[in-house]
Design a protein around this nucleic acid. Structure first.
Length: 580
DNA sequence: TTAGGGTTAG
């Protein structure tokens, strides 16, 4: 009977077709007496893209007198893929109470997948214990799913523990763990695991390299990225367009636009929309705004309809170059384009674009008029612009919003305090500081990475833990002395604490990127090699000035990748033209 | 027989 259902299912494109087939199955008795084809039918119905079919499948399930495990699994699977994956968990729990539905490994697999999509760690935990209780825990596929769920819902330690305890590992579970670490902001650990996997004789496949390259991109380690790219070419993994996309992204995030472009231009496989978007974004973040916009126009000519991300990338290009009019025009074009719906990131970029060019009221109006609920980033962006233009009134407005929204990130308070400090409103500075203390505001530590001979060194603001500490601090003194001869004056507005001027200057001197550049100057003797630094936050104005002067005084190219873009310092100037 | 790992984004 099962064989007879398959060809009929292929013809069901709409819910009404599905209903007709169901009627047929009922009249022929299949529905009542042959659970196997019935489950097949239910699975088709639950996972079909026809409108309303999933709800219909759940409804059919409720009317089956004694549903079997596969009927249940079919609906859970559909719900797990839906927009409301938590419904799958509810459905799973309801089914547990039915005698005819004994859970099997598949039941747990689909439900766990739903937890992963819903980032529902508590539920995953519960199902994990049930997996143990039901006796399925030896199943390597289920173990992999568990690793994946824990990693995705932010419990990397749980994931790692499970992974380490797996007695039998295959490539897929390595992939789950590596990708989990890479996506969970632990790129160093991801790369370590990638190395270990190869040492143990496992052969990375196209999915493994996606995780590994993403880790390289985050760390900005082009050397490792190049190695992986060689492996990819060797193994012919570059016939996979996702792999190519990530290679492009990796080169871009490491600051190698030309290499990214080479990969883009010589792809063995077909370019997809994501390929175009990635390349446009690479150009935008590397300061090649005109080229980015050129590519944005070109993609339509090659029959690629720009989507949300394409517009965002093009808006970023305008933003980084301060091309306000182009940005506004593009934004209006997007609003008129019925095939895309602007999201909060587009509005965020517009607020940044308008705010940074001093059009604070227009920026405010964007936030005020958006059809979706503004988030903290929007107000933080506006607050940043208020700092640049010293608009106290609007800064207070934005700060109030941030407090209302329960923001407790130090940057918000620091900005407001800096704005007061610039106006010499010390009393208000004090109030902000007290609030910070009372609210136990979290400090997001600034850190920078620098790659010296293939070894990644990490510096945290005010770091005193590095082995070469004394040497580094001596070098910083030397740098400060030399650039002062060129007119450098510390911009202490970037230090919040209520300390004396000299101490403020010191606090500034030990920003992580300054430590990194000092270390680079000590250790990297080949002057033709640029010093490359990656930073987790945006570079501060003072560090930006120092980098410019260092590039001139020491005749050394310095490339800093900050949170949003690249700064290429050469001969006293920066590629961002001081607009960032 | 059905199951596990995957790309771009303020």
């Amino acid at each position: 009977m099962a064989a007879a259902v398959e060809p009929l299912l292929q013809k069901c494109a709409t819910l009404s077709h599905i209903k007709q087939l169901q009627a047929h199955l009922i009249t022929t008795g299949v529905f009542q007496f042959h659970p196997s084809p019935r489950s097949k039918f239910l699975e088709f119905c639950a996972t079909s893209s026809a409108a309303g079919s999933l709800l219909y499948a759940a409804d059919i399930f409720r009317h089956i007198a004694s549903p079997v495990t596969n009927d249940w699994n079919a609906v859970i699977r559909g719900l797990a893929q839906s927009h409301q994956p938590t419904d799958a968990v509810t459905f799973y729990r309801q089914g547990l109470r039915m005698l005819t539905c004994k859970p099997d490994a598949l039941t747990c697999s689909f439900t766990l997948k739903a937890c992963a999509r819903a980032l529902a760690c508590n539920e995953a935990n519960q199902i994990h214990s049930q997996v143990v209780r039901f006796g399925f825990i030896a199943d390597i596929l289920l173990q992999t799913t568990l690793v994946d769920v824990y990693a995705k819902s932010g419990y990397l330690d749980n994931a790692r523990k499970l992974f380490d305890e797996m007695s039998k590992k295959d490539v897929t579970c390595w992939n789950a763990m590596i990708a989990g670490l890479a996506q969970g902001n632990q790129p160093n650990e991801a790369l370590q695991l990638f190395t270990r996997m190869r040492d143990l004789g496992f052969k990375p496949n196209e999915i493994t390299v996606l995780g590994a390259l993403s880790a390289c991109a985050q760390l900005g380690v082009v050397r490792e990225g190049e190695n992986i790219y060689s492996y990819i070419k060797n193994q012919n993994l570059d016939t996979n367009e996702q792999v190519c996309n990530v290679v492009i992204d990796m080169f871009g995030k490491c600051g190698y636009v030309t290499k990214a472009y080479q990969v883009f231009n010589s792809m063995k496989c077909t370019r997809t929309l994501v390929t175009w978007n990635t390349m446009i974004m690479v150009l935008a973040t590397n300061g090649e705004s005109l080229e980015a916009l050129k590519l944005f126009d070109q993609m339509s000519k090659e029959r690629f309809q720009p989507d949300n991300v394409s517009y965002l990338a093009a808006l970023c290009a305008c933003n980084h170059a301060g091309m306000v009019e182009n940005g506004v025009e593009l934004f209006e074009k997007m609003i008129k384009d019925v095939s895309v719906v602007p999201n909060i990131k587009h509005y965020g970029t517009m607020v940044d674009l308008l705010g940074r060019s001093g059009r604070l009221h227009e920026a405010y109006n964007v936030i005020d008029s958006i059809p979706i609920k503004p988030d903290v980033i929007l107000w933080q962006t506006l607050l940043g612009a208020c700092k640049t233009y010293g608009n106290v009134e609007m800064a207070e407005k934005a700060s109030r919003k941030l407090v209302e929204m329960g923001s407790s990130s130090d940057g918000d308070f620091v900005l407001l305090s800096n704005i007061y400090a610039a106006q010499r409103r010390w009393k208000d500075v004090g109030i902000v500081r007290d609030t910070m203390r009372n609210k136990e505001v979290k400090k997001v530590p600034g850190f920078s990475y620098i790659d010296v001979d293939g070894v990644i060194h990490k510096f945290v603001n005010g770091d005193r833990s590095h082995l070469n500490l004394e040497e580094i601090y001596r070098k910083i003194e030397e740098i400060m002395g030399r650039i002062m001869e060129y007119g450098y004056v510390a911009d202490t507005g970037y230090v919040l604490h209520d300390i004396g001027l000299e101490e403020k200057e010191n606090a500034l001197s030990y920003h992580s990127e300054k430590l990194a550049v000092a270390f680079g100057l000590i250790k990297m003797s080949n002057e033709s090699n640029p010093i490359r630094i990656n930073k987790n936050l945006r570079i501060c104005g003072d560090c930006h000035e120092v980098m410019k002067l260092v590039s001139k005084v020491y005749n050394r190219e310095i490339i800093v990748r900050d949170r949003t873009r690249f700064h290429n310092f050469k001969n006293g100037l920066c590629s961002c033209e001081d607009y960032w």
